[in-house]
Design a protein around this nucleic acid. Structure first.
Lengths: 190, 190
DNA sequence: ATCATTTCTTAACTTAAGTGAACGATTTTA
DNA sequence: TAAAATCGTTCACTTAAGTTAAGAAATGAT
């Protein structure tokens, strides 16, 4: 698990042993059971997550219905909106599978950042990269039909289709579960 | 114009006169005419933009059709995807109106960042904030119908509806121009 | 192992977006 | 200023997603 984390970090900066130990001393690793709520609507939180193993998702409850908008799997990092803008969360975060995560709060990050400027650089690079990636995903979503989006998902994240319930995938694709079922049947018939 | 830039920066870090002068010495300000192409599909570029006045947009050409996915107006910052991943651009960037921008390239930013660590912090904060904002926008898009998205746009960016052509707005909302026309007529009739 | 709950699929019907075409109105440009 | 191109709207028609409901399949709990 440690290696997964350091492999990830090494994509952005190279760490000395001292720096690695500083991170390990923070005791970031957490095991969480499927279904565990990591964040609820209305809560304030300081915690950011990094997925070492498993899957977590963001969902809203709108008119009593769950709307899943994002999945985070191995090597994905997530800083919730409420951590950035210091307001109560508008969404829920929950464990889709039994998972192993790192959980770090803003204070810890600020401390590490001031001790090792290298982390500041890593965070900037990571944010920039995630922002650019997110922008491309959004563009793709805007310019595709639900069917194209589903076919795209099969290409880009085939694992999600296996490990995530259909009704959660549906809202992730911006449609209703019944429409996803129909759409899948339509594709099979081709 | 200088003030607009420094007002923006002051949201993230406070600058000394020396630092301000270092920025001004970079000679970042550019006036661009409506319709000017800032970036074309297939091009590589190092340039990031900040809009002081005016409006620029990102668009793709897919099956011969323009698909506009983003508008940047006063106080918006844009680092194109191709700058981050050092690959040829998949999209175009063009001026919607006569505009005043700052244009900075990666080398200049790297130099300033190494000279003044404060900029590194600003860039990280800015990226994190933009990422969180972008995530919320994407979530809202996924969980809304075209009509809701249009009504939302009226609330959040009323200026865009005035200053941007309908057919560009349509693809921004993920629909065809005819559908936007119809949708507007439908809303008026309520 | 059984019962209860949740999830997925199917179907019929409704609603809204996509498509192709036509028509002014506006803007561009020669 | 006249011709050409672009833009916005409308219409009729097609296609696909939303809605409501029912039932089968899978999952979870006792």
């Amino acid at each position: 698990m440690k290696n997964t984390l350091f492999d990830f970090i090494s994509k952005y900066v190279s760490l000395t042993e001292d720096e690695k130990n500083a991170i390990l001393s923070l005791d970031l690793f957490r095991s969480v059971k499927k279904g565990t709520a990591l964040l609820k609507e209305g809560q304030k939180s300081q915690d950011s997550y990094f997925v070492l193993k498993g899957c977590i998702r963001i969902y809203y409850i709108i008119d009593g219905e769950e709307k899943t908008t994002a999945f985070y799997t191995e090597m994905d990092a997530l800083t919730p909106h409420c951590v950035i803008n210091k307001a109560p969360s508008e969404y829920f975060i929950s464990c889709v599978e039994d998972s192993i995560l790192t959980v770090s709060n803003s204070d810890m990050e600020a401390e590490i950042n001031s001790k090792f400027p290298k982390f500041e650089i890593m965070c900037r690079k990571l944010s920039e990269e995630l922002l650019a990636k997110q922008q491309m995903d959004f563009d793709e979503f805007k310019t595709s039909s639900p069917e194209q989006r589903y076919l795209n998902l099969i290409q880009k994240r085939p694992d999600l289709i296996q490990r995530v319930p259909q009704h959660q995938l549906a809202s992730y694709l911006g449609i209703k579960p019944q429409s996803l079922s129909r759409l899948r049947a339509r594709i099979l018939g081709k």
